[in-house]
Design a protein around this nucleic acid. Sequence first.
DNA 1: CCTAACGCTCTTTTT
DNA 2: GAGCGTTAGG
Length: 761
Amino acid sequence: MQNLLHNLNPEQLAAVTLPAQSALILAGAGSGKTRVLTTRIAWLIQTGQVSPQGVLAVTFTNKAAKELLTRLSAMLPINTRGMWIGTFHGLCNRLLRAHHRDAGLPQTFQILDSGDQLSFIKRLLKANNIDDEKFPPKTLMYFINSAKDQGLRAAQVDAYDEFNRKLVGLYDLYDAQCQREGVVDFAELLLRTYELLSRNQPLREHYQARFKHILVDEFQDTNDLQYKWLKLMAGAGSSRGAAVFAVGDDDQSIYAFRGANVGNMSAFEREFEVQNLIKLEQNYRSHGHILDSANILIANNSKRLGKNLRTDAGHGEPVRVMEASSDIQEANWIIEEAKNLIREGLPRSEIAILYRSNAQSRVIEHALFSANIPYRVYGGQRFFERAEIKHAIAYLQLMDNLHNDSAFLRVVNFPTRGIGARSLEQLQDAAKQHACSLYAAVPYVGGKAGSSLAAFIKLIEGARFETQYLPLPEMVQIVIELSTLKTHYQTEKEGADRIENLDQLVNAASLFVSEEGFGKDAPALTGPASANTVLLENGDGNVIIDADAALPTVMSPLSAFLSHASLEAGDNQAQAGQDAMQLMTVHSAKGLEFDAVFITGLEEGLFPHENSAQEESGVEEERRLMYVAITRARQRLYLSFSQTRMLHGQTRYNMRSRFLEELPEESLKWLSPKIQPQWFGNKKSAWDDAPAVGANRIAQNFNQVADANAWRIGQGVAHPKFGEGVIVNIEGSGTNARAHINFGKFGMKLLDLSIAKLEKI
DNA sequence: CCTAACGCTCTTTTT
DNA sequence: GAGCGTTAGG
């Protein structure tokens, strides 16, 4: 135990050894958050305060869960199997598998990833003759997901107008169709579990009694439903409730756009009667100038719990700032600086290039490629999202659940077997008429022996029969062959990579079987009974099976593998292993750290992003994003922006980011001359002072590119409706040019210069 | 029924 | 500029 607590600083020590009460740990960037979390669990177990079975630790990503588990097994000589450590979704999946009957789900229910969900919705709209111009699939998807993320069923959503009433109706239809097909989206995993536990008292009490300590990572990222879920799981309010140990950083809350609610932190303090609030403010990562920049930047945010990072490291190098004339020049500059760093002895993998949006990576990649520097881009397509893998998985899904229409439609004519749109339309009509799945509807549409559809059914049935007693990897192998996916890609000229990936899928299945404890001889389609299964009597004399840690107790290897494929989309790293520079969005950099970091594209409209600039809360989230970006750096930090940039095939002329003005002068070193733009006189908003713009360099630069008659930044204009205003920014060129114009009391407008009736004044 | 050409959109992302 | 979805033609 001595060495467990060894080397913790006083705050960390205090957090790790807190009594069994709910606690909120405000853990700043680089303050040893994961260390505290793992040591806390190890300490609780080692001191006998809790058994491994009594621990529930929740994370957001599989990566974080895995890291928790590995670091924990290094600390503790015990089997970690008894502990429940996983993502919200992974844990809910386990619960729903074990209690599928109580949750009203088929045993082989399948999980829709976001791509699946979108095509599911498109299909729903088409089947119900809904105009997808008026109700775009993405809008509906967002509507449904955010309702579920708040814990609301269709009936509970407040429909305040005609449009919303329609959306609610579609939400209801959507849920019904999911139920019919035996599929569940990500948010549903949580909502279903929440409803299951709130309705089923014996079950709820069983789990509440079991988990004495609940630990939550990245608490600032929880949404409303996850918070309610935690309250239920912990038995909040009851005297025997679990101790919830929540670790988070409100300054790193960057996922509000997908439902995360930082307000959960203060709600937690209140509702869990938190007596122990501990701030971890000692930073072990960054040099002084970098940390000062982060602290001073984030101080511009109004809604904060308040926290200031400090370091014992010296000031270190100043933060270097560069203005480039174009995005291409920006990329070339980055590469020159990176070469210097590499020459100084930095490994390439310790240099990261961050950007706000993925579209920015192309120019940088091109420059790196020309310079012959190995690099790795994060955030590309994941393994399980590749088309060929999705197809193979769909065959398996269909075999596991014949009513999964999404899977049916994906592969019924792939590879092509002469089943076209017309036959499928008929089939869909028949399915609707008989209220059954597409698979079951085949006999109704002349699925006579010999027809293409009948042949397809025969294929699926044959595959089921042939593989029913085979271990999972063989099963996958055979399905890839029988489906003719392999031969299809063999005849395709670019198919070699795809075949390689299909082989990888068989490997993934083997790996999954050995890692998740599915014996190689276990039958693939039926779940084996297990000695680990815990049986309990509930009040009605019914039996509750505790969903214990090992998946084999509650589901078949195939179902488990399919869940795995949806819940863990797999690595998206290209050529791992090589010492390569790291390219990624700021979002995906969260949780990582590097010796040297480049933050690129620091321009108004890009970072902060224009879609976030409308509301103050949007700008504050962008600022937190910038804070996350800065705090990734250990020793060197470079900031860059460009006068011109190609975006969506058009040249844009952006002002430099307001965030640059918010950094401490004394920590910065400008590598290019710093031109003082007049519109940054105050810190409210970059737009506010726009009318004061006179001749400035960006405008001049714009004039060099465009012809003399063109509109220019700073030009005063008159509009028939909005009156007098001034051009603040121009994007695009020629007939596509649009301008941000500040019309004073009418506010900022974005007008098409070739359409709007504007006069120069 | 299948392929090629056009036209629209377009943050951030994990599960 | 690129990827997707729709439409026109083979």
